[in-house]
Amino acid sequence: MSSLEVKDLHVTINGSHILQGVNFFVPENKVTALLGRNGVGKSTTLKAIMGLNPGTGSIKFGGTEIVAMPTHKIVRLGMGYVPEDREIFASLTVKENLSLAARDEKPNYEMVYALFPELLTRTGQRAGTLSGGQQQMVAISRALLNQNKILLIDEPTKGLAPKLVTEVAKSLAHIADHSTMLIVEQNLALVKAIAQNIIVMDQGKVVFEGGPENLQDESFVKSMLGVSGGHK
């Protein structure tokens, strides 16, 4: 069981009520994209699921209530997280970043290095000196090393050069084939390519849940996301 059910989730940070009753469902073995304009609460939602922002309401992961659980216990239930802005450990080497993340008895290094061969040649390099794209590869690899039941991925292509966007998108499509994923992504071409469901948030609430075919509709995209066409 790897589905995720969020019910009436509220998060208040420093007195501002950021999530105001968020409800959605992430089905098993499918990719669900969480969309919405900047500042509507997408990252806050992922952090609340991770236990990084204390929230109230209910979050059920594979049937287990995780809303008041400490973060490390939630993660050990099988949750992989790729945060916005990557948050790799700059002073640690690539290898140290990965070994820190490895918690399975047999972490799947072969898969990670097969997906990102670039990292293999840089295992001893400090992660802070990697390019943005390589740092994102480290961040994604941390989540893939273990047999996770769900992956939460926050804006993986943000700030990357176009060529790297394609590369990261390709690897995400590869991963998406056989996992449960909740992904926040502004690049609608990527969303269309990998997502089976979309959720749209606005001002701390979910305002739409449905299929990705809605993204073909220009007026839907414009009214929901405030952008036109398939790009930012």
């Binding site: 991770m50 990084l52 400490p70 973060t71 490390h72 993660v75 050990r76 997280y81 945060p83 948050e87 450990f89 700059a90 002073s91 640690l92 140290e96 070994s99 820190l100 993340a101 918690r103 941390r142 273990n146």
Partner: peptide, 20 residues
């Protein structure tokens, strides 16, 4: 390793499933 990483970014260490 956990201490060095924690000095940099403690919450990300917990987000890797580590009890700090």
């Amino acid at each position: 390793l956990i201490i060095r990483a924690g000095v940099e970014n403690r919450s990300m260490v917990t987000a890797l499933g580590i009890n700090v």
